[in-house]
Design a protein around this nucleic acid. Structure first.
Lengths: 363, 363
DNA sequence: TTGTACGCGTTATCAG
DNA sequence: CTGATAACGCGTACAA
């Protein structure tokens, strides 16, 4: 038999102890003589003993895995966050199971059912599309849920998020500071709070500057949608010298569209993204963006979840600071004269080449 | 109690039947009167019964989940493949658990242990860094492993791959056909078969054309490494008018480096990638590349794995055809005169704007 | 057609 | 310090 697996009973027989003593020795729990502990550990190693997590879960009605639901594995921002979450989870001795839901509510519900039936009660969710009632029902059934990056609707679960609205303000303020007045916005899906918050930040600053909000187009956070949205803005005929995009992927798509339309970035049009995905660093021009504090988001979320699993009280929603990263996709607007020949580096303001991370507060 | 869960015992009590009858009724197995089946199903729904997958796994020593090990969640090629695998797995009623290993052998081993202890015996692995012996040991212990995209070392497991070598030939042939003679190559990690196979394909065609292989630089399939490799090629002083990059991400990084060095793509330097990630479509210029048949790869791999789990015999390694996708990053080489002012579209050969998928065979 | 009894591997409780 | 014993929830021979 290939699948022959060794259990604590085998170890008990091998050591002449009882299964329960073996169990305790293995876990270093209770009062056991160091000698027997050594004996047990020894034969465990010799017999290639592997604890059966299923049996353990069955007995404990709990598991030491966490689940991580992600709405779109294809958006590079999420993989980066996944890595950070895994790292922090490992720090707690927890393994992370990834559930890619594509934002489909049915898939989410199905995964949550599966997780529950696998005794996995800890879930980090990067956006849940199921209803608040549904979420509350799960929580009532003992599931611990922490929303990461995207809040759970209706405050139905603890959440850890970056301050998207402040990010929207920072991005807009940066463009205003460069001298732009006609600033368009490519917004994310209207149903997502992160999208509306970034948009709100944009409107905040435009309002403060006493400028009417510029042209708006909508995308779904994919590169393709950013491309289409930019084309739409161009075709609309509305004047703009800069675009604030609700995420980096759409910004990249927008830049692609602008160039294919013969517009230079940043000489004629400046573009700001949001997230600070790695791709943006190597894009041409390198993307000016708002950086989300990945490691910190992951750390706070995982620690919060582990706390909840240990019985801690639920805490207030967390908001983490973001920061502006200035690269090459933004510059002062061209002189009012239409057409080509925009002034490059007309002032010392436009940073070129390197990176310039602005202070993370004051917004 | 919130976590109060209803079991088949509850259903048995509610229906006045025995637990085993309930179990059979629920699964529609054995000879049960339709009436009792209905009764059981009915109260199952009423009591919100959820089967306990852990208990089931413990009893069956098996689970209905598959695991998918991926070496780098940050490489956009993998998420795309993940989606395809999930889709196909769902078709078999299987759920997919993702394990992001970062290519770290220890992480792989740990995940495999965990999977085994979770009674998950089906694993699709996109590249395994553990030793062939280690793999064989797992298989001996009842684990079914199918290598996807990257073969398992030493033929230690079934594998489903694209024909990387043919892809390398196609890419090189495309550049030769455009008139390039000085073709550099940015290779992947030397330890990976996919990397060496693509390189082999390149050498095949260069050899057939009677040309000495050009400059070679190495990367690790990340965008940053492609950037660095391209700079290295430039600094080496060796002449080249085209680069075949072992994957799209490095190609994107290389293009970024070339541009920052003042070289136009494709006017002065042509670049070909490999994979056909979505990003390449929106890049500027849009990337000419070798497309891997994602859906087909996923379908064959998952079907193979499900077959193995059902007891089928192991099959021969599969090789799936790739195809050339011509976009905007390739063009005829500039006239021999050094420096700027390369001839754009000097012949009708260079496709611009749209896409042009070449036949997938004859290589 | 249905019920009984036991096993899956582990942990917790209680007794020694 | 250690050992019995009883769950945990489900599947399955075997019996009725």
């Amino acid at each position: 038999m290939p699948g022959a697996t060794t259990t604590i009973y085998d170890l008990a027989r091998a050591t002449g102890l009882s299964p329960s003593t073996v169990s305790r020795a293995l876990r270093g729990i209770g009062d056991i003589s160091p000698a027997t502990v050594a004996r047990v550990r020894d034969s465990a190693a010799r017999l290639r003993y592997r604890p059966n997590a299923v049996a353990r879960s069955l007995a404990l009605r709990a598991s030491d895995s966490l689940a991580l639901m992600l709405p779109d594995i294809a958006n590079p921002f999420f993989p980066a966050l996944v890595k950070a979450v895994q790292l922090r989870a490992r720090h707690h001795g927890k393994t992370v199971l990834l559930c890619n839901t594509e934002g489909v509510p049915e898939a989410e519900a199905e995964y949550l059912d599966m997780l529950a039936s696998c005794q996995i009660q800890g879930v980090v969710a990067m956006g849940l599309s199921i209803t608040p009632d549904e979420i509350r029902r799960r929580r009532g059934a003992g599931m611990k849920i922490v929303a990461l990056d995207r809040a759970a609707a209706g405050g139905s679960a603890a959440s850890v998020q970056a301050d998207h609205r402040a990010g929207g303000r920072m991005a807009t303020d940066h463009l205003l500071g460069l001298g732009h007045r006609a600033i368009a916005h490519i917004a994310g899906p209207s149903g997502l709070s992160v999208a509306t918050e970034r948009w709100d930040g944009y409107r905040d600053k435009m309002g403060e500057a006493g400028i009417d909000p510029g042209a708006i187009a909508h995308g779904d956070f994919t590169e393709g949608s950013g491309h289409r949205a930019a084309l739409e803005l161009i075709r609309s005929g509305r004047h703009f010298t800069a675009i604030f995009c609700a995420n980096d992927l759409m910004a990249l798509g927008a830049i692609s569209a602008l160039r294919s339309a013969g517009l230079e970035v940043p000489a004629q049009i400046s573009v700001v993204g949001f997230d600070d995905i790695e791709l943006g660093r190597y894009a041409v021009p390198a993307l000016t963006t708002i950086r989300q504090p990945l490691e910190e988001l992951a750390r706070v979320a995982v620690d919060l979840l582990v706390g909840l699993l240990r019985g801690d009280e639920a805490r207030e929603p967390e908001r983490l600071a973001v920061e502006l990263v200035v690269r090459e996709s933004t510059a002062p607007p061209p002189r009012p004269v239409a057409g080509q020949g925009a002034p490059l580096a007309s002032s010392g303001i436009a940073p070129r080449g390197g990176e310039d991370v602005r202070s993370r507060e004051d917004f």
